[in-house]
């Protein structure tokens, strides 16, 4: 495990119009580790995740202050181009949302957008590489030009991961990636996360404590918009410092 700081969140406050959603969050995320955000629903973990690639910009009424530093640079400044940021910070959503296009086009969308491939061959190899990394290539190699929406739920989600990988991100954000999947598909995704962390920094929001315990190196527990506790996963689960964390992991709040 490297100890290099990748993302550093300092004094982050987020508001939806008048309502404050996040209160003074401070959190460090290390490079090439899996960090999971857990907590009861509505605690602000998804909001925090979306701050990391400024998806909150899409919501008019959402405002924030504080700093989110990636590789030492604040991303919350006006001159940070959110488009460039998002090609560096990939995202996988709660429900698999492949584009209504072929499997190939789904993966090729990002590289085409950013002009990453100079030739068709290069693009082909990017698509194949991303699909292989997402552990999907063997299953779909004979039907790359069929609709991505025709895949099973778990395959769709891996397609979405492949799509995110294709733009060569450094960080991958996952917003409850398995909540719409069955146990077998979930297991596959978890294996994949294990695999991906060698190359990428991963932040995952999950409502399943078992999942957090299985896949993550570090865990942050949130409650009512506040970060209660964060640290190595094994410590959080075996020896929580706060009463609220203990209540949650023992199932008293949920």
């Amino acid at each position: 495990m490297s100890e290099k700081l990748k993302i550093s969140i300092k004094n982050l406050n987020v508001f939806y119009a008048e309502k404050q959603a996040l209160f003074d969050i401070n959190l460090n995320i290390m490079e090439r580790e899996v960090t999971s955000l857990i907590g009861p629903s509505g605690c602000g973990k998804s909001t925090l995740l979306k701050c990391l690639n400024r998806m909150n910009d899409l919501i008019d009424i959402c405002t924030m202050d504080g700093q989110v530093m990636i590789d030492g640079a604040n991303i919350n400044t006006p001159d940070q181009d959110p488009v460039l940021l998002r090609s560096k910070v990939g995202m996988v959503f709660q429900k698999p949302n492949p584009f209504p296009k072929s499997i190939y086009d789904n993966v090729a969308y990002g590289p085409r957008l950013h002009g990453m491939a100079q030739s068709k061959d290069e693009l082909d190899s990017m698509v194949i590489k991303s699909l292989t990394r997402a552990g999907l290539y063997d299953e779909v190699k004979n039907r790359l030009f069929e609709a991505g929406t025709g895949l099973s739920g778990g395959q769709q989600q891996r397609l979405c991961i492949a799509r995110a990988l294709a733009v060569n991100p450094e960080i991958i954000l996952m917003d409850e990636p398995c909540s719409a999947l069955d146990p077998i598909a979930t297991a596959k995704i978890e294996e994949l996360i294990e695999e991906l962390k060698r190359k990428y920094t991963i932040v995952i929001v999950t409502h399943s404590m078992q999942q957090a315990a299985r896949v993550s190196d570090r865990t942050a527990y949130m409650h009512m918009g506040e970060l209660i506790e964060s640290g190595f996963t094994k410590n959080i689960f075996s020896n929580p410092q706060h009463q609220k964390t203990q209540d949650y992991i023992t199932g008293r709040i949920g």
């Binding site: 488009v83 990939g90 959503f93 949302n97 584009f99």
Partner: peptide, 13 residues
């Protein structure tokens, strides 16, 4: 969700 995915990949609005 489709639009979010596209924006998440770095497409502009």
């Amino acid at each position: 969700s489709i639009e979010e995915a596209s924006i998440g990949l770095g497409a502009s609005k």
